[in-house]
Simulated assay, not measured.
Amino acid sequence: MPLPQLTLSLQFGHLQDPAPHRAALPRHKVARWIRHALEADAEITVRIVDAEEGQSLNRDYRHKDYATNVLTFDYAAEPVVMADLVLCAPVIAREAQEHGKTLTDHYAHLLVHGTLHAQGWDHETSEADAEAMEAREIDILAGLGIANPYASR
């Protein structure tokens, strides 16, 4: 079965050191990771931000005053998934280092995670939902040749 179609906008905000993030996120890989997590055609914007922008968005939209790794703003799930995925570069870099993962693999995981959120998956509603979403992420990432991101827990 062919993968869903994706219209992708990849944006980089003002980062202190953008080079490692740009290197970890070539457009063709970002599109591949997202398309493997999609269940329908999509229009998605991915924006890589600094801690200040990440914290501001998380505070304004989730009422949590800290920078988080990924925020998903979902606008439509049918007939076309429409969403913005905002990833906070310094948080992702720190987490990748703390968990002994490559920056590229951690970005792949969080893009898959955010894409699932854009389609209605939610790990905060119940333990069963969290387990189902985690299992789906593991399956998608395995299909992309990326190790289980939860194995080190």
Rank of each mutant, 00 (worst) to 15 (best):
residue 111 L to W: 05
residue 75 Y to T: 04
residue 112 V to A: 10
residue 80 V to Q: 11
residue 32 R to N: 12
residue 101 K to Q: 15
residue 91 V to Y: 04
residue 135 A to Q: 13
residue 81 V to G: 02
residue 87 L to H: 02
residue 112 V to Q: 07
residue 92 I to N: 08
residue 106 H to G: 00
residue 151 A to K: 12
residue 146 I to E: 07
residue 69 N to L: 13
residue 99 H to S: 10
residue 128 A to T: 14
residue 98 E to M: 12
residue 152 S to A: 14
residue 16 Q to H: 10
residue 73 F to I: 05
residue 8 L to T: 01
residue 4 P to S: 01
residue 22 R to Y: 01
residue 150 Y to C: 07
residue 105 D to A: 14
residue 43 E to G: 01
residue 109 H to R: 12
residue 33 W to F: 14
residue 116 L to G: 11
residue 120 G to R: 04
residue 34 I to V: 14
residue 150 Y to S: 05
residue 91 V to C: 07
residue 103 L to P: 05
residue 143 G to D: 07
residue 47 R to N: 03
residue 86 V to E: 04
residue 120 G to E: 04
residue 19 A to T: 08
residue 24 A to F: 04
residue 64 K to R: 15
residue 43 E to Y: 00
residue 11 Q to F: 00
residue 30 V to D: 08
residue 146 I to Q: 06
residue 84 D to G: 02
residue 86 V to C: 03
residue 122 D to E: 11
residue 145 G to D: 11
residue 18 P to E: 12
residue 19 A to P: 00
residue 102 T to W: 10
residue 134 E to T: 13
residue 61 Y to M: 10
residue 118 A to T: 05
residue 130 A to F: 11
residue 125 T to D: 12
residue 95 E to L: 13
residue 141 L to D: 10
residue 72 T to C: 15
residue 85 L to S: 07
residue 27 R to D: 08
residue 36 H to Q: 13
residue 98 E to H: 06
residue 18 P to N: 08
residue 38 L to T: 06
residue 118 A to H: 07
residue 27 R to A: 09
residue 30 V to K: 10
residue 79 P to Y: 06
residue 22 R to N: 00
residue 61 Y to E: 11
residue 84 D to P: 00
residue 128 A to Q: 15
residue 62 R to Y: 14
residue 78 E to C: 02
residue 19 A to S: 08
residue 88 C to Y: 01
residue 61 Y to H: 15
residue 110 L to R: 08
residue 88 C to M: 02
residue 7 T to G: 00
residue 68 T to C: 14
residue 73 F to L: 11
residue 67 A to L: 03
residue 86 V to K: 01
residue 85 L to W: 04
residue 16 Q to V: 09
